[in-house]
């Protein structure tokens, strides 16, 4: 067994030092490549509890009717409609209780203001048929992130 690396032939010496290190480095490289997940992690956006089925059979009401006890509060109805020519570049336009809102930012402020007073005001999100689902969920998420405990998406 060779005990010293200060060999006269420096080339074979450096080889014998490097090879195990390269082995280990490659192994580590493969290991970390393998354990890294390149797929984005999926989170779940939990929904509020929907109504009992007998509440729906009575008519074409939204599927998520607010639970009893909240009905004395007036709902906040957010309508989302598709639009093509908006100065802000958004692809949808918003209406809150019938009143047009110019951007998502304004809508966030308005809803945030309401939720600061009461967080259990039912917010009903009513997107038009041709609105992309991502936009509807963006508003839904915005309401939840602002602390709302009762956001409902309309089922139709």
């Amino acid at each position: 067994m060779r005990t010293t690396y200060s060999n006269r032939s420096s080339r074979s010496s450096i080889d014998s030092v490097m090879t195990p290190m390269i082995d280990v480095v490659f192994l580590l490289l493969v290991f970390f490549l393998a354990t890294a997940s390149f797929q984005r992690q999926e989170k779940s956006l939990t929904s509020a509890v929907a109504a009992a089925p007998d509440a729906i059979r009575q008519g074409n009401q939204p599927e998520d009717k607010p639970p009893a006890g909240l009905t004395d509060l007036s709902d906040v109805i957010v309508e989302i409609r598709r639009s093509n020519n908006k100065p802000s570049g958004e692809s949808v336009e918003y209406k809150m209780n019938g009143e047009p809102i110019e951007s998502l930012k304004t809508l966030t402020q308005r809803i945030g203001g309401i939720l600061k007073i009461r967080s259990d005001v039912p917010i009903v999100i009513h997107p038009d048929n041709n609105v992309p689902a991502g936009e509807a969920i963006r508003v839904y998420d915005m309401a939840r992130a602002n602390g709302s405990v009762a956001v409902f998406l309309v089922g139709k």
Binding site: A50, I56, E63, D64, I80, P127, D128, N129, N130, V131, P132, A133, E135, A136, L153, V154, G155, K156
Partner: peptide, 11 residues
């Protein structure tokens, strides 16, 4: 996806 498909599924 258009929301109508999600709405129908929710219903």
């Amino acid at each position: 996806t258009d929301y109508e498909h999600i709405g129908a599924l929710l219903k």
